[in-house]
Amino acid sequence: KSAVKALFDYKAQREDELTFTKSAIIQNVEKQDGGWWRGDYGGKKQLWFPSNYVEEMI
Rank of each mutant, 00 (worst) to 15 (best):
Lys1Trp: 12
Lys1Gln: 12
Lys1Asp: 11
Lys1Phe: 12
Lys1Val: 13
Lys1Thr: 14
Lys1Pro: 13
Lys1Met: 13
Ser2Gln: 13
Ser2Arg: 12
Ser2Gly: 12
Ser2Val: 15
Ser2Cys: 15
Ser2Glu: 10
Ser2His: 14
Ala3Val: 15
Ala3Gln: 14
Ala3His: 12
Ala3Ser: 15
Ala3Ile: 15
Ala3Cys: 15
Val4Cys: 15
Val4Pro: 00
Val4Leu: 05
Val4Gly: 05
Lys5Trp: 08
Lys5Val: 14
Lys5Met: 12
Lys5Ile: 15
Lys5Thr: 11
Lys5Gln: 11
Ala6Met: 03
Ala6Val: 05
Ala6Thr: 06
Ala6Cys: 07
Leu7Gly: 04
Leu7Ile: 13
Leu7Trp: 05
Leu7Pro: 01
Leu7Met: 11
Phe8Ile: 09
Phe8Gly: 07
Phe8Asp: 08
Phe8His: 11
Asp9Lys: 04
Asp9Thr: 07
Tyr10Thr: 04
Tyr10Ile: 01
Tyr10Gln: 02
Tyr10His: 04
Tyr10Cys: 07
Lys11Ile: 15
Lys11Tyr: 13
Ala12Leu: 00
Ala12His: 06
Ala12Phe: 00
Ala12Ser: 08
Gln13Lys: 12
Gln13Asn: 10
Arg14Lys: 14
Arg14Ala: 12
Arg14Glu: 08
Arg14His: 12
Arg14Tyr: 09
Arg14Gln: 10
Glu15Trp: 13
Glu15Ala: 11
Glu15Gly: 09
Glu15Ile: 12
Glu15Tyr: 10
Glu15Asp: 14
Asp16Pro: 02
Asp16Glu: 11
Asp16Leu: 06
Glu17Asn: 02
Glu17Leu: 00
Glu17Tyr: 03
Glu17His: 11
Glu17Cys: 08
Glu17Gly: 04
Leu18Gly: 03
Leu18Cys: 05
Leu18Trp: 00
Leu18Thr: 02
Thr19Lys: 00
Thr19Arg: 01
Phe20Arg: 00
Phe20Ile: 04
Phe20Asn: 03
Phe20Tyr: 02
Phe20Lys: 00
Thr21Glu: 15
Thr21Leu: 13
Lys22Cys: 09
Lys22Asp: 05
Lys22Phe: 07
Lys22Arg: 11
Ser23Val: 05
Ser23Trp: 13
Ser23Cys: 15
Ser23Ile: 03
Ala24Met: 04
Ala24Tyr: 00
Ala24Asn: 07
Ala24Cys: 11
Ala24Leu: 04
Ile25Trp: 07
Ile25His: 05
Ile25Glu: 06
Ile25Asp: 02
Ile25Cys: 08
Ile25Gly: 01
Ile25Ser: 03
Ile26Ala: 01
Ile26Cys: 03
Ile26Glu: 01
Ile26Phe: 02
Ile26Gln: 03
Ile26Met: 00
Gln27Tyr: 15
Gln27Ile: 15
Gln27Leu: 15
Gln27Phe: 15
Gln27Cys: 15
Gln27Ala: 10
Gln27Thr: 15
Asn28Trp: 04
Asn28Val: 04
Val29Leu: 01
Val29Ala: 03
Val29Cys: 06
Val29Tyr: 03
Glu30Lys: 13
Glu30Phe: 14
Glu30Cys: 15
Glu30Gln: 14
Lys31Pro: 07
Lys31Asp: 02
Lys31Thr: 07
Lys31Arg: 12
Gln32Gly: 12
Gln32Ser: 13
Gln32Lys: 12
Gln32Cys: 15
Gln32Asn: 12
Asp33Val: 11
Asp33Glu: 14
Asp33Phe: 09
Asp33Pro: 14
Gly34Glu: 07
Gly34Thr: 08
Gly34Phe: 07
Gly34Asp: 09
Gly34Tyr: 07
Gly35Met: 10
Gly35Ala: 09
Gly35Trp: 06
Gly35Lys: 09
Gly35Gln: 09
Trp36Ile: 03
Trp36Val: 03
Trp36Asp: 02
Trp36Tyr: 09
Trp36Cys: 07
Trp36Phe: 09
Trp37Met: 06
Trp37Arg: 00
Trp37Phe: 05
Trp37Asn: 03
Trp37Gln: 03
Trp37Leu: 04
Arg38Tyr: 04
Arg38Gln: 08
Arg38Gly: 02
Gly39Lys: 00
Gly39Ala: 00
Gly39Asn: 01
Asp40Glu: 03
Asp40Ile: 00
Asp40Asn: 04
Asp40Thr: 00
Asp40His: 01
Asp40Phe: 02
Asp40Pro: 01
Asp40Cys: 04
Tyr41Phe: 10
Tyr41Ser: 05
Tyr41Trp: 08
Tyr41Lys: 01
Tyr41Ala: 05
Gly42His: 07
Gly42Val: 03
Gly42Trp: 05
Gly42Asn: 12
Gly42Leu: 09
Gly42Arg: 07
Gly42Ala: 11
Gly43Lys: 07
Gly43Gln: 08
Lys44Val: 08
Lys44Gln: 14
Lys44Asp: 10
Lys44Tyr: 12
Lys45Asp: 07
Lys45Arg: 11
Lys45Leu: 14
Lys45Val: 15
Lys45Trp: 10
Lys45His: 13
Gln46Ile: 01
Gln46Ala: 10
Leu47Ser: 12
Leu47Phe: 11
Leu47Trp: 05
Leu47Asn: 08
Leu47Ile: 00
Leu47Thr: 04
Trp48Thr: 03
Trp48Phe: 10
Trp48His: 05
Trp48Glu: 02
Trp48Met: 09
Trp48Arg: 09
Trp48Gly: 03
Phe49Asp: 02
Phe49Pro: 03
Phe49Tyr: 02
Phe49Val: 02
Phe49Glu: 02
Phe49Trp: 01
Phe49Asn: 02
Phe49Thr: 01
Phe49Cys: 04
Pro50His: 05
Pro50Asn: 06
Pro50Lys: 05
Pro50Gln: 04
Ser51His: 07
Ser51Glu: 08
Ser51Pro: 05
Ser51Val: 09
Ser51Cys: 14
Ser51Gly: 06
Asn52Met: 12
Asn52Cys: 14
Asn52Ser: 15
Asn52Gly: 11
Tyr53Asp: 01
Tyr53Trp: 07
Tyr53Leu: 15
Tyr53Gln: 06
Tyr53Asn: 05
Val54Asn: 02
Val54Ser: 03
Val54Ala: 06
Glu55Val: 14
Glu55Ser: 10
Glu56Pro: 11
Glu56Gln: 09
Glu56Cys: 13
Glu56Leu: 09
Glu56Tyr: 06
Glu56Val: 12
Glu56Ala: 09
Glu56Trp: 07
Met57Lys: 06
Met57Thr: 10
Met57His: 11
Met57Cys: 14
Met57Glu: 10
Ile58Pro: 14
Ile58Phe: 14
Ile58Lys: 13
Ile58Leu: 12
Ile58Gln: 13
Ile58Trp: 14
